[in-house]
Nucleic acid binder design. Structure first.
Lengths: 351, 351
DNA sequence: ACCTGTTCTGAAAGCGCATTCACCCTAGAG
DNA sequence: CTCTAGGGTGAATGCGCTTTCAGAACAGGT
């Protein structure tokens, strides 16, 4: 009762396996009558061509891969209720990339194979995915560089967000620094704010660091003191931690900042809530900004001024680069920086 | 410069291909020294085992598949700004399923292959996916029944949401009817509302219809008049259409309903906004409810009373069923109904 | 009827790996 | 020192399909 193969279909329809194959690969090359017979037999048998065999023979899979980080413990039973902050944020990000890649992939006739991953090695899901795709997109810091070295020798790999770990890879990032710089410039020049506080994240987060660099540049541009490090850092960059950060900044006393710039929207939203609880008005008493442009940022009150990240576009670009490289393996490696856009909303006083 | 194979690795490390294979499949069966030599050679060569060849030889792929509907036109350039209602809603739903499946799949050592689809046939992505996976989950109404018939003869298929189109398939749904029934009961009994209006969707939407059935049951339970059809239907079930529906209901004059029950959250949120514009207070003048429990429902003001759907859980259950069936192909087909839970919030007066 | 030019179809050779079977080597027992 | 057990390894086969390369079938033109 194993699955029917070309041989079964061939026998049943009285042709050779070559013809059966042609019916699927190049229907026009088979006479109508013959094709009908074959398809009929296939239907009766419940024949579905084996992707493995096809891939082996044609050396191509028609599948692109994506590896993204796994923020949540897969073994912890996901309690239906508790969709925590971190979870929401992570979901938004990787989900949008998935969506973007899926769309673009489909446009090019590819399916998308995805796997979250923490660890590498020959046993890992990463290796499995890598062996089954024509091209591979990797979110920064999800696959050990060591593994990437090996994989990228076998098939096109594009690196998403974060630093380009290996220079012969294609690479797509968003303009983190430029975005934050523009945002800070807006606060300084357009709103006349001078005392800005930046709340960053883990120093290991390339995005958060790049945003801080943009902040510094803006300070420098404006002739303000240039900080060496963020005024505050949080580990997970969640709403809860954003709230705590806001309170910490408030408690610093009289030199309370005129604006709080958070390295992402989640923290900023948490801060908005904390400030409301404390009776601090936004933007009258203090301006608040985020980064990412998550849906929530538009909904929350006051609506959050932020930098919109074209995350979905990131995924789409990844696919485009992969497709291009599959067409021309010799194209020199590309490094794209996708533009971001400032969303001026209520929380900075633009309401 | 084609990709290195077992043969290359074997030659370079001075062993046979069988040994190379063993190093990857069953490392313990190879002497330490030998294994090291092989891995070393593999690293130098940039060897990644071909999933196709492996799959062909072992008749298993280690991949599960998901097919979901494609709401947006993939050819329409996704304008970064315009994340329309429909788009958002769709994204939430399929994304959550993807996320759920991905997690569960990973727990079982599987990767996930996804593809949106409109059409079937031997050329389609569906066929491609089906040929490359060990098991297959399908969102209702995304794959022609005709194709499913064929595919399900070759590998386990589980149907998600919607009616079970083929009875020998496993099947998972959420308790749409029971949820809406409970919701309506709550409005009637706990809030003493009697004049309820139900806004449905396309009659082709099994979910919307099931919810309406639940509504009818609640009416019957309470001895209220039982409507034959929803008071109103919208085509796309978007915020915009929800807003319009709310206005239509208002314009009906004096017999304005005491509660508006929408078949999903999107419409309900749109309605809230329309009602606010019209100066109608919620819940004082009219109660509003949704269905789904999307994140937005919790954020909007007043917060929306709704029925939480365990969408992610749906994906996880799909994987569990597939895994079970892969272990025991003879298990009789299962039909699961996942419980939903009422989220009593401000928009019905529970604030 | 004969030959030429097209279609259409079949035979056969892999694609890269897993796996069985037989063999060899080493270690320990006799 | 010989014999036996096993662990370790290699040769060979097949997984189901694609893809030449030829040959068969058929159309058209003389």
């Amino acid at each position: 009762m194993s699955a029917p193969t070309v041989y079964d279909v061939a026998e049943r329809s009285g042709v050779s396996i070559a013809t059966v194959s042609r019916v699927y690969r190049n229907p026009a090359s088979v006479r109508d009558r013959t094709r009908e017979r074959v398809l009929e037999a296939a239907r009766e048998l419940g024949y579905v061509p084996s992707g493995n065999a096809r891939g082996l023979a044609s050396r191509t899979t028609g599948v692109l891969g994506l590896c993204f980080p796994d923020y949540a413990d897969p073994d912890a039973e996901a309690d239906a209720e508790a969709d925590s902050d971190a979870d929401d944020a992570a979901m938004l990000y990787s989900d949008q990339i998935i969506r973007g890649m899926e769309r673009a992939a489909r446009r090019h006739g590819y399916a998308l194979l995805i796997a979250a991953s923490l660890e590498g090695g020959p046993e890992s899901l990463v290796a499995k995915v890598a062996g089954r795709v024509d091209g591979f997109a990797v979110l920064a810091q999800t696959v050990p560089t060591r593994d990437l070295e090996v994989i990228s020798r076998r098939l096109p790999v594009v690196m998403l967000a974060g630093p380009r770990e290996i220079d012969h890879l294609d690479h797509v990032v968003v303009a983190n620094a430029a975005g934050e710089r523009e945002l800070a410039r807006h606060l300084i020049e357009d709103h006349g704010l001078r005392d800005l506080a930046f709340v960053g994240g883990d120093p290991e987060s390339p995005d958060a660091e790049a945003r801080f660099r943009g902040f510094r540049q803006a300070c420098q541009d404006a002739g303000l003191p240039v900080p060496d490090a963020p005024d505050l850092r949080t580990a997970m960059m969640t709403q809860a931690e954003g709230a705590r950060a806001a309170e910490t900044l408030l408690d610093r006393g009289p030199e309370r900042p005129a604006a709080m710039l958070f390295a992402n929207d989640q923290m900023a939203v948490g801060a908005l809530r904390a400030l409301e609880r404390r009776g601090v008005r936004v933007p009258e008493d203090v301006a608040v900004t985020g980064f990412d442009g998550i849906p929530l940022s538009r909904i929350v009150r006051p609506s959050l001024t932020t930098v919109r990240q074209p995350i979905r576009h990131l995924g789409e670009q990844a696919v485009e680069l992969l497709v291009q490289r599959l067409a021309d393996g010799n194209r020199p490696p590309v490094s794209l920086e996708l533009p971001v856009s400032l969303a001026r909303r209520a929380s900075c006083g633009c309401g």
